[in-house]
Each structure stands twice: as C-alpha cells, then as structure tokens.
Amino acid sequence: MLQVRNLEVVYDDVMLVLRGVSLDLPSGAVVALLGANGAGKTTLLRALTGLLDVHDGAVTKGSVTLDGDPIHGLRPAAIVRRGVSQVMEGRRIFGELSVEDNLRVGGHTNAGAVGERLDHVYGLFPVLKDRRRKLAGYLSGGEQQMLAMGRALMAKPRYLLLDEPSLGLAPRLVDQVREIIVEINKSGTAVLLVEQNAAMALSIASHGYVLETGKVVLDKPADRLLADDDVREFYLGLGAADTGAARRSFRDVKHYKRRKRWLS
C-alpha cells in the first residue's frame, strides 16, 4: 500500500501548495485523483516519486510510506527500484532517442530484465514495436502517450502513477488509454490516475479523491463520487442531478456553495 498522510509541500520555501493531504493507494487498486488546474495533483505525484527537489519543493510535514516504510526522503532512483513509477504530465518522452532506446532507459533500474520487459511492453503496445527504430520525437501525441506508459512499465512497477494520460487526445484514443490502464491493472499493478477527465477516471477507479487548492475535499468510492452533485457539475459538466438550474461557472459558486457542502 502506498500511503500519504497529512502531507504538506512547500515550493521555494514559501509557497504552501499541499496542505495536509492524505490518500491511500492499496496494492492492486485503481484510484482516481481529480482536481482543477493548479490544485496540486502534479505536486503530489512529485512528492510520491522524489521529484520535488528538481522544482525547489520540499515536504515540510506528513509522510509518504510504501508498505509502511517512509519513502519521501528517498532519491527518485531508489523509489523506482522499490516499485513506484510515474508517467509525467506532458509525456516527457526523450525525443532525440529512438522508441526502443526510450524503453531501455525506462528499464534502467531493471537492467537484468530489459529483454523480457520489452516483449511485455510491445505486447501491450504493438504500435511501439512497429515504430521502434523511429525517433520518439516524431511519434504522434497518442503514440507518445503509449511510449511514456510503456517506458514506465519497463521498471515493472507495483504502483504506477499516471499524470493526465488523456490530455490532448481524441476521444477514441482516450478510450484506448483507458483500456490499457485496465489491462495494466489486471496484471497486478496498482494505478493512481490523475485526471481532468473525471468520467474516464471514475469509470475504472474503485475510489476517488478530489483535490482543491492543496486539500482533499472529497474522498469517496468512485460510484458515489460519480453521483456527487459537485463532481457532476464541475468535473463531468452534467449539471447537478437535483436542480434544473442553468450551469454556473466554477468561480461563481466555488466559495459559498462548495465549502459548505463539504463541511456538512
């Protein structure tokens, strides 16, 4: 189990971005993490994978534990070795390397099993096999997302953290990504799915969290989140189930209505 407890993260010594976040990713589960732009989702993933340093960020309170052992002080490489891998926001593939070399770098901590993992990843993403000698920078957006996911799988993670994998993809590709996540999960890997596309995320997650300005404001099983009025209104764009009122902008109602509801 990957556990976050009361986590506080500060950037540049002053900017408090996460304020007491707690979250559980049980082994083998799919958990969704929703939230508007700037809520702190990416920051949380950085804290989970040791990448805060690069951004002058630091954990000032709370803990991240993996099966009970604290990991928030570890280097990224040590965290990857323990089985936690991240697919970063914006794919971040190595554009100047071939597709296969990208995957090999993904297997950096798992050098003994690179061949076997390559077969596994090519099985999951046949399109990468076809393109394996191509420079990754020339792949389409969808192919780059597959590559980023495949690259993370090379380390054979037990916990996979995905930062907005559906961003900028056509609906058909979003479906494909969704199916692949399901398949990855079936083979035993737990997935923390950060998404703006709440419908997609909640359709495969068992549990979901909603993060708002650095705080977890909702923490419920996925089916109950799907039925939640606020989630329906602000993340699914469906309008609240119980009112026929015209849809209001997020900002208009944010202050009074939302806060009160979560307090109750």
């Binding site: 990857v80 970063m88 971040r92 390397l97 770098v105 950096h108 901590t109 050098a111």
Partner: peptide, 23 residues
C-alpha cells in the same frame, strides 16, 4: 551501454531521466 543511454536521456530531459531512475 546502459550508462551511455542514460547520459543521452539525461541530456534530453533531466527530470524525465530522473523519473526513470537514472542517477
């Protein structure tokens, strides 16, 4: 080589290389 590849990856995108476990 594994280290040579890691060096090219780090030259391309340092943070992404870190995220793959490259030191």
């Amino acid at each position: 080589t594994r280290m040579g590849l890691a060096m090219r990856a780090a030259a391309d995108d340092q943070e992404a290389a870190l995220a793959q476990g490259v030191s």
